[in-house]
Design a protein around this nucleic acid. Sequence first.
DNA 1: GTAGCTGCAAACCTTTTGCGCGAAC
DNA 2: GTTCGCGCAAAAGGTTTGCAGCTAC
Lengths: 131, 131
Amino acid sequence: MQRFSQQRERIYEAVRTSMEHPTAQMVYDALRPEMPRLSLGTVYRNLHQMAQEGRLRELEGSVARFDAVLPPHAHIRCVRCGQVADLALPYDPALDREAVGGGWAVTGYELVFNGVCPTCGAEQLSENQRV
Amino acid sequence: MQRFSQQRERIYEAVRTSMEHPTAQMVYDALRPEMPRLSLGTVYRNLHQMAQEGRLRELEGSVARFDAVLPPHAHIRCVRCGQVADLALPYDPALDREAVGGGWAVTGYELVFNGVCPTCGAEQLSENQRV
DNA sequence: GTAGCTGCAAACCTTTTGCGCGAAC
DNA sequence: GTTCGCGCAAAAGGTTTGCAGCTAC
């Protein structure tokens, strides 16, 4: 079972009060002054734990992927195996206009769906049956 | 000026003919059998060069970022400095339904705009003036 | 007392870089 | 011949993990 941890709460607060969608390193740097013994490993462990719990949201993967299909189009990524596939969904230029504001120059957008791919879905199913 | 390179063309073909939005490692593995002397560094160099040229598209960054705002909302990322900010844009659940198909179980989507943040925009401006 | 969590350090994986040689022009 | 690109190997991030001690319960 999960236990209370001072570190975890501070890490959560650091993410919550930051406006910059911090990386693990940023959280670590922000907390270091008040928690000199804090370790980066602990930050990573807790961030992932909270993300899995649904208490935080993790953005972006950590491996670059490449696509030779240039016209803007949506993608779908399997949250289990990381596979990425194309999706036939029209690009909506109206969104670009909506997004403009606050001094940003918008050049386009990336629409990525999350889901479970057929392969992983089948595995999940048989895992459940196994119990 | 840029020159023709056998390696670059093969790398491009590997990405183009793959349906899986390959990582650099995947491209490397795919080409290794026919090009045993190929180096991973070359794959990275060429992928980035082609992405910059606009011949390929690069998906996802390579640093994880975290967000404590759970309700689905859009983000905007600066293509120059990597900063990420929130965007007030309504989540459109209709998209989830549209995306379903091909055996995927869709759980949601992530909408990330690309653009240049106010700070980097100002820098770019002064760079241009400098010329 | 018993898990779970931490700090530390080492390992790992992905990506970048310096260098001397070879290829394109 | 000159310049750019390559292979190689080392280095530089970023992230994960094993372990012994500490903490919440």
